[in-house]
Amino acid sequence: MIRAELPPYEGDTAHLRKMFSYFPSGVVALLANVGGTPKGMVASSFTVGVSMEPPLVSCAIRRQSSTWPELKGAHRIGISVFGEDQGEMARQISSKSIASRFEKIPLRHADSSALFIAQAPVWFECSFADELPAGDHTIALLEVHRGGADPELPPLVFYGSTFRQLQVSSADG
């Protein structure tokens, strides 16, 4: 067995961010109709299968977010996994320009406050369950009430600080 030589973490957040960027993750939009207006944010730190009973998913949210306090108060929050061709849409919704976040974004709604991205490969209708402090972020726990998936639509992946497409070999089907 070869001994691994790992340098200690010494507060270099740029180095840590780079290391984190090489863990591939899906990219989601958290969306809701709040007071008659679409509100939303984008996250790449989304986790499914946190719990099966009750059904929970989680997401890490910056403590400085001005959108999260509005979203968590919604009766239902829609979570849409972006498709591989929806990178520009993800950039637009995550932009600082709140006024133009939803211009020309094809949204779908349920019979609740939840909003969804059209042509998303996976979607969940959730309600806020709880949140936990996690350093400069908050871990939001969301209870899943409804959802679905289209296995024909590949997801967008965040890897190496950029959006990527999955490379599926023919052997994978």
Rank of each mutant, 00 (worst) to 15 (best):
F46V: 07
V50N: 00
V27Q: 03
P55V: 04
A43W: 02
N33M: 14
R17L: 09
S58E: 03
S44H: 07
V28R: 05
A29M: 08
P38G: 08
E53Q: 11
V57K: 01
I61N: 08
V34N: 07
P55A: 13
G49Y: 03
V28G: 05
C59T: 15
S66D: 12
G49P: 06
W68H: 05
T47W: 00
F20I: 14
K39E: 13
F46W: 09
S44Y: 02
A43G: 08
R63P: 00
E53N: 12
P38D: 11
V57T: 05
S21H: 08
P38R: 06
K18R: 15
C59D: 01
L31N: 04
M19R: 11
M41N: 01
V27T: 11
R63N: 14
S66L: 12
V42D: 04
M19A: 15
W68M: 11
R62K: 14
S58M: 06
E70R: 12
S66H: 12
G36A: 10
T67F: 09
S65P: 04
M41V: 02
E70S: 12
R62V: 03
P54D: 02
P24G: 10
S66A: 13
A32Q: 06
G49V: 07
R62I: 05
F46S: 08
T37Q: 14
A43C: 13
L16C: 09
E70K: 13
T47A: 14
L31K: 04
P55D: 07
S21W: 04
K18P: 00
G40N: 05
F20C: 13
L56E: 07
A60S: 14
G26K: 08
M41R: 00
A29V: 06
G40C: 06
M19Y: 01
L30P: 02
M41Y: 00
F23C: 11
G40L: 00
E70W: 02
P38K: 05
K39F: 05
L56M: 06
K39Q: 12
K39W: 03
E53I: 07
V28Y: 01
T47D: 00
G26D: 11
T47F: 08
P38Q: 05
E53H: 09
L31R: 01
F46C: 10
T47K: 00
R17G: 08
E53P: 00
V28A: 06
A32C: 06
S51F: 02
K18S: 11
K18G: 10
Q64G: 11
P55M: 09
S65M: 11
